[in-house]
């Protein structure tokens, strides 16, 4: 399901009793560099509560003037490593963290983009259109018949197509540039969109692409630029084409994916799931 599961190391920049505080500029440089490399960093100073530790390792950095204390978690659940950073420049502190981490695997920015749909359940009506629209099984149904995102990793990076066709404007992609797909508030024209229910099965009676285009032409005036079935369809097609181009999906496998019959079947299954979910409510 999810393959990028290496959790970041939690680094604690300790500036409490027994340690000398870093200059603010150095503190900011160190924190920016560590965050940009994927670490989680706690600044331990004064005036706010810290999030409790969990079961990971802690790396505690402090200007202890050569006397980094040996610390042990009272519960025995967390391994604590302390390092003295007295007199070290920001670059040297970041290098020290890398050295302390060693070869422990960690997710790192730049190697993967967290791209997946996020459902706004305050708007979602469980209509299951996203489930029938997505060709990659990103969506599924929970035990209590609610639509949910079940396979994040199946989502195709930069494809927000399902969000564009959601009749309730309930699907967000936080890494998308424009609203309301990025989670921005929904304006009145988008709210008007809520009343448009699309019967996916009827759309797919003929050729899937021409059917959706016909449907979009009829409803064009009611769709915003960012939320249109035309764009959704193009993105889905681009996504498939890119997958073939990159060699991720052989052409013959792709050819078997979006046939009209299969989509119709999928829509029927989704419809049945939706009906069952609604009946159970």
């Amino acid at each position: 399901m999810i393959t990028h599961t290496h959790r970041p190391l939690r680094v604690v920049l300790y500036e409490g009793s027994g340690s000398i505080a870093l200059p603010a500029e150095s503190r900011a440089k160190v924190m920016m560099a560590l965050l940009d490399q994927g670490y989680t960093v706690t600044r331990s100073g004064h005036g706010a509560s810290a999030v409790p530790h969990d079961d990971r390792s802690l790396l505690v950095l402090g200007a202890f003037e050569g006397r980094a204390p040996a610390l042990e978690d009272a519960t025995g659940l967390v391994s604590i490593d302390t390092r003295d950073i007295t007199g070290l420049a920001p670059d040297a502190i970041v290098a020290l963290v890398s050295k302390s981490r060693g070869d422990k695997p960690m997710n790192e920015p730049g190697k993967w983009k967290p791209w997946f749909p996020v459902i706004d359940y305050s708007r979602c009506t469980n209509c299951m259109q996203c489930l029938s629209f997505c060709l990659f099984d990103v969506y599924g149904v929970s035990e209590d018949n609610k639509i949910q995102v079940q396979n994040n990793d199946n989502c195709k990076t930069n494809c927000p197509a399902c969000s564009r066709v959601c009749p309730e404007v309930a699907i967000m992609f936080p890494k998308y540039q424009a609203g309301p797909i990025n989670g921005d508030e929904i304006n009145e024209s988008e709210s008007g969109r809520e009343k448009i229910k699309v019967d996916i099965s009827s759309l797919l009676g003929g050729d899937i692409y021409s059917a959706l285009k016909d449907r979009s032409a009829a409803a064009k005036s009611r769709f915003s630029k960012e939320r249109s079935p035309d764009k959704a369809l193009d993105e889905r097609k681009k996504c498939l084409t890119k997958l073939v181009g990159d060699g991720f999906i052989p052409a013959d496998v792709l050819a078997s994916l979006p046939s009209t019959e299969e989509i119709l079947k999928k829509a029927e299954i989704a419809k049945a799931k939706a009906a069952a979910a609604l009946a159970a409510q």
Binding site: I2, T5, Q37, R43, H46, G47
Partner: peptide, 27 residues
């Protein structure tokens, strides 16, 4: 971040909440 660092407050920082949510990070 610079203004938080210039304050005396304790605070938490994460590299990316989306990344953590994608992995159902228990943190």
């Amino acid at each position: 971040l610079q203004q938080l660092c210039a304050s005396e407050a304790s605070f938490e920082t994460v590299s990316d909440l989306c990344e953590m949510a994608a992995h159902r990070d228990p943190r």
